[in-house]
Write a protein that binds this DNA or RNA. Structure first.
Lengths: 190, 190
DNA sequence: GCAAATACTTGACAAATGTTTATTAAACGA
DNA sequence: TCGTTTAATAAACATTTGTCAAGTATTTGC
């Protein structure tokens, strides 16, 4: 097999995903129905249920696809001996976002999904927390936890703003600005 | 009339709200049904529809109640001649959160509602943007917009973390820390 | 190509959701 | 207190959702 899924599955999944994306431009997730998705995707309503439990389950699975790419970026940028790898990592993240802007906008933007944002925060926590404390030479504490929450939410917020404003600035510019914000913020511990 | 709503309305709304709060302890909004709410609240299922269009509409209306209180706090703390009012404002916000922690946790937390968070950001934008630029003596720009998004999302994130970790630190402590983060962050423009 | 596997469709079904109408009960105001 | 107003109920109804069994069509591996 050329991919790991039957071509029919790829096709119907694509049709459903496109339909969902189109619907999400109009209205929030909570009043998008399976019937509508099936209608726009031009598939039988029953077919939807062969792949997803409901609309929320569908969104969750789409999230996971982005997650995987995202995790890879973070894993590839563990802080090394002398450089903290923060800037190149951020550049790649902004690139990932721009390459998947349709879906990304849906997930972290206006009509987005709080559960996704929460999962993103937790993933970042697991992945970056240790790196962060290493970069800043700070050992974990309640204060650090709060600083961390502030920083991660801030980053997601700035990404969302960037996506929703048409991504005018380049990934490099954004990465540079965000790095500055993160590093500046860390001086609350100085 | 003693309040602005019929006593019967107050009673059934309270019953429904309590039922919703109880259900939200168990599971996320998207699989809470009207039937369940009506059952726990011990009212006729049809009665629910006399007040709300669906479960999401119910949550939205509850949100607005918090919004009103929140807006009042912000309005009451416009920057004055010599003091910026940021710290006392933050203290009151953390107090508001702790007084409504059940609902607040639901709205900005894990199983929260992205639409609410988005509305909150927009409200903050309208209310605070001008104040912010005044406090920091910076005139509006793309950079400032991004800084603003970062800061607002960061604040909401830290509030969420505080709520979900049992609100161990006092509102005053939190306000002081958040103020420090905001002011420190603003030095990216220096 | 062909057989086996499996994805999709159709149509039917029970359960849940949302709407409506007539009726009952409670709250309000004078 | 009494008449008026308005909210809640009950019960029936149409629509939507989620599930399933049987048949059709497509893909895959050989």
């Amino acid at each position: 097999m050329s991919q790991n899924e039957d071509r029919r599955i790829r096709k119907t999944k694509k049709a459903m995903t496109d339909a969902l994306a189109r619907l999400l431009l109009e209205k929030p997730l909570n009043n998008i129905s399976v019937r509508e998705i099936a209608e726009i995707a031009d598939i039988n309503r029953g077919t939807f249920y062969l792949h997803y439990r409901d609309v929320y389950d569908m969104v969750e699975q789409l999230q996971n696809e982005i997650f995987e790419k995202f995790n890879k970026i973070v894993d590839d940028h563990e802080p090394k001996n002398n450089s903290n790898e923060l800037f190149p990592m951020l550049v790649e993240v902004f690139n990932l976002l721009s390459e998947n802007s349709d879906l990304a906008k849906v997930l972290i933007g206006k009509n987005g999904d709080a559960t996704f944002v929460d999962k993103l925060k937790n993933a970042l926590k697991e992945k970056c927390f240790y790196n962060f404390s290493k970069i800043f030479g700070i050992k974990s504490s309640d204060k650090f936890n709060y600083f961390y929450s502030y920083t991660v939410s801030g980053c997601i917020g700035i990404c969302s703003a960037w996506l929703n404003n048409g991504m005018k600035d380049s990934p490099v510019e954004m990465a540079s600005f965000v790095e500055k914000l993160i590093l500046t913020g860390s001086s609350v511990f100085a």
